[in-house]
């Protein structure tokens, strides 16, 4: 049961320690000063903000009007629309400026639901829930923009 120890040169120690110190430095810099753009050396900012006791909490959704007259929720998940809610939420200003960007959701949903009637129109909506003194208060639906699919 001979347990050998592999040799290691000074140089090998040197670059390894330097790389660790550099990596830790970049990570600290990212979390203390930088933005998500620096991934993987950006801040670990998931759930790291502080909503107020009277915060308005929004859930962004996309609804669609089908050719048979039904208005349904198009779940913003990779499996059902090819794109997730977070990606749509991150692009709200661009989408309200150019509603045709909702094509991503419409096409993603249509290609994954070939048996459903055609999509005619989509709405970008938000369920707004207001907190009152840190507790769940009234909710309402807000329409941000709509887009009619080219026929």
């Amino acid at each position: 049961m001979g347990q050998g120890v592999r040799g290691i040169s000074r140089m090998s120690y040197g670059w390894r320690i330097a790389a660790t110190v550099l990596g830790v430095g970049l990570l600290l810099n990212g979390s203390l000063r930088m933005s998500d753009d620096l991934w993987p050396f950006g801040p670990l900012s998931q759930y790291a903000f502080s909503p107020a006791m009277d915060e308005t909490i929004v859930i962004t959704r996309v609804e669609g009007l089908l050719a048979d007259g039904r208005r349904i929720d198009l779940p913003l998940r990779v499996e059902s629309a090819g794109i997730s809610r977070a990606e749509i939420e991150a692009r709200i200003p661009q989408i309200t400026a150019d509603p045709a960007l909702l094509r991503a959701v419409a096409e993603g949903w249509t290609s994954r639901h070939p048996a459903e009637p055609a999509l005619l129109k989509v709405w970008l909506v938000q369920d707004e829930t207001r907190l009152v003194n840190g507790r769940v208060g009234p909710a309402r639906l807000v329409v941000l923009t709509t887009w009619e699919l080219p026929s």
Partner: peptide, 18 residues
Amino acid sequence: RSGGWSITSWPESSILMW
């Protein structure tokens, strides 16, 4: 950092509720 360099702002916020 996001709580304005305060120790208490995140733990006292409505983040889990959100």
